[in-house]
Design a protein around this nucleic acid. Sequence first.
DNA 1: AACGCGGGGAA
DNA 2: TTCCCAGCGTT
Length: 332
Amino acid sequence: MPWKGEKDPYKIWISEIILQQTRVEQGLHYYNRFIAKFPDIHKLAKAPEEKVFKLWEGLGYYTRCRNLIATARYISKERNGKFPDTYGEIVALKGIGPYTASAISSFAFNLPHAVVDGNVFRVLSRIFGIKAPIDSSQGKLLFARLANELLHKGHPGFYNQAIMDFGAVVCKPVSPLCNGCVFNKKCFAFLHNKVNALPVKEKRNSIKKRWFYYLVLTHKNEIAIRQRKGKDIWQQLYEFPLIEATGHLDKKAILWQVLKKTPILKNDFESISLSHLFRQQLSHQLIAGQYIRLGLKKKPIKKNDWLWIDKNKIGKYAFPQLINQYLREKPE
DNA sequence: AACGCGGGGAA
DNA sequence: TTCCCAGCGTT
């Protein structure tokens, strides 16, 4: 991996933010594009927000992108581009928590802070037979203390890298390689046949269903989009004007909602067609999406948050994957 | 302490 | 389907 052995805190930072809750295979391409486009923190700080989001598009957890921009601008302007070099200052940065602060501290500055990520939780819980749930605050404290005890203080970066690699390659979540494992004479989980029972996680997430009806409004060479704001998924990404319903709507019901909830009037459109049903599974939501294409004779006069853009500029904006599914299938 | 936040790959 | 991934911020 390009970030292995990397000493530039900027590059380590970028890689760690990208890899938060993200598999290496998924993040690798994004990392390479980021570094190519923004080789140093000043370049990232100067970049227009839209460009950065476009590069982040498809990676998920978009708050990471917003915080990335904010932190880049802060370090570039307030600190002259010099990345902070103490754990306390690093963990205070936006988007950086205990894990990322430990990673940067140990990899870039050789500071003795143990990383505790999903891999470390798994390795320690199995080897030591720790049943404390990894998503309880007690469990987190316990694992963090143990990890810091075990940390090789002389080579913290090397040790951190090693334990995470071990978790990713040997002590995997499913079918770990216990037979060839160097710990199989000591590992609690292996000796007590509890490998599949550890680590313990207590919270079950329930999945919420949502129904999104997107209006694909076109007028001449323009199409309407809007930016998502507020506390919900896909904050700051773009989408088509949206009608969210509490259940499935048929064509007639959708049209009724359009007339009721948007400035579109009955005689404003000259053509209408309905896409097939799309779906996107998030970790905590299942979204059914359908697209209603309306060819407008005239744009509605009433002001709202719709942005009328040239159809061939649509690629400049970052969209959620639900929208991209549609765009890939139906180039406007 | 509990919850919300994406997307994808593997079993 | 279910799990989980180099987690963090808000309430």
